[in-house]
Computed example of a mutant assay.
Amino acid sequence: MTLAETKTPTGRTAQLARTGLRHGWTTGACATAATTAAYTALLTGEFPDPVTITLPKGQTPGFALACEELTDGRAMAAVVKDAGDDPDVTHGATVRATVRPLPPGSGVVFRAGPGVGTVTRPGLPLPVGEPAVNPVPRQMMREHVARVAARYGGTGDVEIELSVDHGEELARSTWNPRLGILGGISILGTTGIVVPYSCSAWIDSIRRGVDVARAAGRTHVAGCTGSTSEKVAVAVHGLPEDALLDMGDFAGAVLKYIRRHPVDRLTIAGGFAKLSKLAAGQLDLHSSRSQVDKGLLAGLAQQGGADEELRKAVAGANTGLEALQRCAARGVPLGDLVAAAAREESLAVLRGAPVAVDVICIDRAGTIVGRADPKGPAAR
């Protein structure tokens, strides 16, 4: 394989293997396109086809409509999801948006139609009873509704009912049922784009990132699971761009390569749930290949002073986030305990390599919820 300059999901230029894989679109991007087309038709009587939307990072893709319906008081448009060359269970699924007007002042209301799940348990970033439409896709749809309203004289007060053909069947191949998301799939995505990386290409990019940092004389690098944790690592440590490693889910790839090519200090930064997997000894943090160990979290909570009632609540929590929230409410520093355990596992993988390690756990909003530092006890 040859190497090419390209953009990673976090927006940095990095050396990545040229695989020829096509990018695709998230369910959130497809839902936004369908919503935009439907609301435009509701106000003008005509469906734009293709319909163009603006993604969070400024890209403006066009989407062809698979079908459309316009009647008194409602408009429906549908887009077939193209996940590119990513092995995505929802590739080829038809994502539908039905838009209905609401009284002025109602805002944008989301409904789960057939094939879109509903949240039934606490611990997710959405309240119980809400459609499983994640925060970024919701924001994208709100923004596009506002733009269409401003252009064509609407109020922007609408109900958006999202549905996915065969979504309930597709959801059986996801973690949704176990998480208490029932009735279908989730509408997901943070950038709108599905970037299909093979494991070998991503791991190669991690190795090249370490090489670049060492060649630049960097003695402190950070392996981050995503763009939010990367921003936190930069804010905490003031690291330059070439010291940042787009680790993704491949914690093991970072640790094993740095074991052979040491730097003075390594920061591991990521979401609480992902780093709880590292604390349990998992080196691949992807949701399809490792799970949050609630028993481990319960044991750590007990070490941190949790009574038996809280320990059982943590062990039975629906998600890592719920466990963290329960402990925080009772003054048990579960985030720090997970960070410390993740640090110990990292040191074990490093096998005595001369690398100081610190760990930063964050929540979905980017707030630090746990730290472990080589200088001593966790501190914020």
Rank of each mutant, 00 (worst) to 15 (best):
T8Y: 01
P9S: 09
G11D: 15
Q15T: 12
L16G: 01
A17E: 12
T19F: 03
G20I: 07
H23C: 13
H23D: 14
G24D: 07
T27K: 02
A29W: 01
A31M: 14
A33M: 12
T35K: 09
T40V: 14
A41T: 10
E46G: 11
I53G: 01
K57R: 13
L65A: 15
E69L: 10
L70P: 11
V79I: 15
G84E: 04
D85L: 03
D86R: 03
D88A: 08
T90Y: 11
H91N: 15
P103I: 02
P104K: 04
G105W: 00
S106L: 02
F110E: 03
G117P: 08
R121V: 01
L124R: 04
P125R: 06
P127G: 09
P127F: 06
V133R: 09
P135N: 09
P135R: 10
P137H: 03
A150M: 11
R151L: 11
T155S: 14
G156P: 13
D157A: 14
V158H: 08
E159Y: 06
S163L: 07
D165A: 14
S173R: 07
T174R: 00
W175A: 01
P177R: 09
I187L: 05
G189Y: 00
G192P: 11
S198V: 00
A201T: 00
D204Q: 13
S205H: 01
V212R: 11
A215P: 00
R218V: 05
R218N: 13
V221M: 10
V221G: 04
S229R: 14
V234M: 06
V234A: 03
A235N: 12
P240K: 04
D242N: 08
D242C: 02
D242A: 06
A243L: 08
D246N: 11
G248T: 07
D249P: 07
A253M: 09
A253G: 02
V254E: 04
K256W: 14
R259M: 08
L266C: 03
I268R: 02
A269V: 15
G270W: 05
G271L: 13
K274N: 06
S276G: 11
G281A: 07
Q282W: 14
Q282N: 08
D284L: 13
S287R: 08
S288V: 05
S290R: 03
L300C: 08
Q303W: 03
Q303D: 07
G304W: 05
R311S: 06
A315M: 06
A323T: 01
A328P: 01
A329M: 02
V332M: 07
P333Y: 04
V338W: 08
V338E: 00
E345I: 00
A353R: 08
P354A: 06
V355W: 04
C361Y: 07
I362G: 09
G366A: 12
G366N: 09
T367Q: 14
V369K: 10
A372L: 06
R380P: 07
